[in-house]
Design a protein around this nucleic acid. Structure first.
Lengths: 252, 252
DNA sequence: CATTCTGGTTAACGCCGTTAACGGTAAACG
DNA sequence: CGTTTACCGTTAACGGCGTTAACCAGAATG
């Protein structure tokens, strides 16, 4: 009846196997191979059906590694951002965005697994739950909130919002973890969604290659998109500094 | 030595088979089935290896049907736009954008085939050629050009552009077919890329479902993105009318 | 010690893309 | 005209995939 027991031996073993699954899958992706149950299993020295003790089906394996890839990538974004002072969230955001883009361009397969993997609206949550916990989404929301605390950029009040959107920001399903945001301040989430949409847009466009490769290489499209979002986030006065920072990061 | 012969019987037959391939593939997708060589073949009353007389491999089949789906979808955009006067390209663009979104939401599988299908940068053109001919891209470029002719919105001069981007707009690889645009006016293509990136972004986000379903259903994200692009396209004065039009189209 | 649960096995099914070897028939040619 | 050739289809087969069923060793549990 004790609330949380220390993990038993079996549980630790099981957890370790999950980790190994993710590790094997990541290696496969990194090597450019296809992600398949059989390949993952054989890399672990197992047979494919054994994996069914850990995932219900192939899609669940994909979701699992997508979640972990996102987590790992986010760690990278955090590191990139940590070059800048903790009380400078604007700089951190810029750095994180560039890191996000760099990751998407250097690991397009992983990126598309995490961010282009279609989410059916019908299929009763499970997968959506994972999406909701999206680590990267969470991190970007937090950064945006810090920026708001510092710069107090304007955001729509609840009654300016489309009623459906109002419901959505009051009871968010999205990677937000917004409990710490006052309901009256939830209009902020609208700004989050819009800026996330813009970032997601360019990066996906570039990562999937639906764009002149030279434009991707120059980074101009990404750069312009970010710059357009400085003012709405109250960073107009900071623009010169941040653009400089952006260019530095881009040319790294 | 005559320039273009009438197609011989064999050629007509072959062309008809290509059409049937595309038709069979489209039906499969529409029914929610997987697109596979075997399924397409058997639906045509053939065996899979026979298809290799028409495509080199599976990816080429995908590219083929992607191209044709894009073509068919574009026809839909044109029809949606044709509700408005020919000398009102702004209205037509709004209608086409809404039609584009509607298509992406109602046929996510087809959409992702056409627009989320990754294009490797290495693989020596073939596929990129088809992308370059992208029917929808061509249509949106044309609409944008008509809007510019009418409203003369500002665009960057060639020397304001990033040098790499300048090369790209002067010798476009992108779905543009920009021969009719004076080299000195090629800065227009930059506006095209940026607005296309914005449109592509929201629509992909919505179509793949990486977003709160309520926000998708409300259409607010899409609406806001379009509205943001009215002013840069010289449509600020037309905004009230176009927003009304947008809302009408969205609620259809 | 007996029982149950967990995590693995092998075998098999029905898909898939792809290749090779072969054949019939329509077009092209001398 | 007859002959050749090129095209378009076939069947058979390979290896790989996700997935299920039946089975089994061993560890944890009573």
């Amino acid at each position: 009846m004790s609330a949380l027991q220390q993990p038993t031996r079996r549980e630790r073993q099981r957890e370790a196997t999950f980790d190994e699954i993710v590790r094997a899958a990541s290696e496969l992706l990194a090597e450019g191979a296809e992600l398949s149950l059989r390949a993952v299993a054989s890399r672990m020295g197992m047979t494919a059906p054994a994996l069914y003790r850990y995932v219900d089906n192939y899609q669940e394996l994909v979701d699992l590694v997508a979640f972990e890839l996102d987590k790992a990538a986010t760690q990278g974004f955090i590191e990139a951002a940590s070059k800048y002072r903790e009380d400078d969230p604007a700089a951190r955001l810029c750095a994180a965005c560039v890191a996000f883009r760099r990751w998407a361009l250097s690991k397009p397969r992983e990126f598309s697994l995490v961010f282009a993997n279609p989410i059916g609206s019908t299929e009763e949550s499970e997968r959506r739950e994972l999406l909701t916990l999206s680590t990267s989404g969470r991190y970007f929301t937090d950064l945006l909130y810090e920026i708001w605390e510092l710069y107090q950029f304007p955001y729509p009040s609840l009654d300016e919002l489309d009623p459906i959107v109002r419901d959505a920001v009051l009871d968010p399903l999205i990677p937000a973890k917004a409990e710490h945001i006052e309901p009256s301040e939830r209009g902020l989430l609208w700004i989050y969604m819009r800026s996330w949409s813009a970032l997601y847009g360019v990066v996906t466009l570039e990562s999937t290659g639906h764009c002149d490769p030279r434009v991707i290489q120059s980074g101009a499209l990404f750069r312009a998109t970010i710059i357009d979002w400085l003012a709405p986030l109250g960073l107009g006065a900071e623009a010169p500094r941040l653009i400089q920072l952006l260019d530095d990061e881009l040319s790294r």
